[in-house]
Write a protein that binds this DNA or RNA. Structure first.
Lengths: 199, 199
DNA sequence: GCACTAACTGAGTGCTCAGTCAGGATGGTA
DNA sequence: TACCATCCTGACTGAGCACTCAGTTAGTGC
């Protein structure tokens, strides 16, 4: 591993765990057995390093979801949606650092002043919401999902529900795994084509 | 207004807008036309000031929701839920700073080390989720809401949906007002007693 | 007028940190 | 061997910061 990528990885984890301001360049240099100057040689400034981290996070997320979408052959759009929710929660456990970083205010703060950061965040956001949206669109084609549902907007609501659970875990306020059956049931209730029934 | 409350208010807005680390005590002193020392005379440390701000935010939120609950005489639990969602979105626009502060990582960061902060956050969280939970419980009593719904857990999911919208606005990624009809419809679909129908 | 206290002041302190820079090491090429 | 580019080093710098403290002011009771 080159020193550049070592710094990038260390920064990803440190920024996710402690935040941008709370992680010093001195600290990153020590963590990676590198001189302070090396950080600036490769990335120019702390802000640029953060942008590189965000770019890295985006690639990781896009890669993970791309791999998932290609491996799945779901029976229906509705099944695809349920699998997407499951995969989202799985990924949030598998790659905690990616989600921790996105759940911090740092990136959104920077995005207010930095156009590149904003664009990066929007790409990530579209990728995350897009997974649910794709399932809903497919479901409307195969008839498993109600035609009255607006895919993009419903995807946004589902994303909020699922990502909200992950966020509560990150804040150590709640454990999302517990809610897994409820959230699947909720998604079905929100979008599945209704059959005749009363309760 | 005493200098103490002037500092408290300035801090609430500054911490919400820029974050804890990004707001210096020097800055707060200048904003409120007060000497640096005065901040420390009243609050002892920046961390204590932040805790006072959080306590203030909690009182404001609890007061707002208490006033709302007392003024409402909804026809059913389902109607109450819809009003709660509307009020949440309304409050999030009316008192932007309260929600901005809660959507920052600062408080959750501090909560990891500070028990008082953690307790404060949990109270706020319970207050916010509680509003939806109360509506669901009432709805199960009057029959407007399905008995199969677990009030607390469903309240959590609805909270995530609604608060997620507010959060997207705070990140300037989306405008929540647009989604208002969808989110009401979604809530009804999630919890309302089902009638015979097919689509 | 005096004593006591609470509120307030602001210059000063010591520390942390992002970023710099002059120079060293390494390896490829003429 | 000489030259050059790339990678890397770490002591240094200047700015910003939280916090301190000796001292001032204003109010209150005697």
């Amino acid at each position: 591993m080159t020193k550049r990528t070592a710094i990038l990885h260390a920064a990803t984890h440190a920024f996710a765990a402690k935040g941008l301001r709370e992680t010093s360049t001195t600290e990153l240099a020590t963590m990676t057995d590198v001189a302070e100057g090396t950080v600036f040689y490769h990335f120019g400034s702390k802000e640029n390093l953060f942008l590189a981290v965000l770019d890295h996070v985006r690639h990781e997320l896009e890669g993970a979801f791309k791999g998932y979408l290609e491996s799945q052959r779901p029976a229906s759009g509705l099944a695809m949606l349920e699998e997407a929710v499951a995969f989202y929660l799985h990924l949030a456990e598998d790659r905690v650092e990616l989600f921790l970083l996105l759940h911090r205010s740092d990136a959104y703060e920077l995005a207010r002043a930095n156009e590149q950061c904003r664009a990066e965040l929007e790409k990530i956001f579209n990728c995350l919401v897009g997974v649910f949206e794709a399932a809903l669109t497919k479901g409307q084609e195969d008839g498993s999902i109600r035609p009255s549902v607006a895919p993009r907007r419903m995807a946004l609501l589902i994303f909020n529900m699922v990502d909200g659970l992950v966020r509560l875990r990150d804040c150590a306020l709640y454990e999302p795994g517990v809610m897994f059956p409820e959230i699947l049931e909720a998604c079905r209730g929100l979008v599945a084509r209704r059959t005749n029934r009363t309760e």
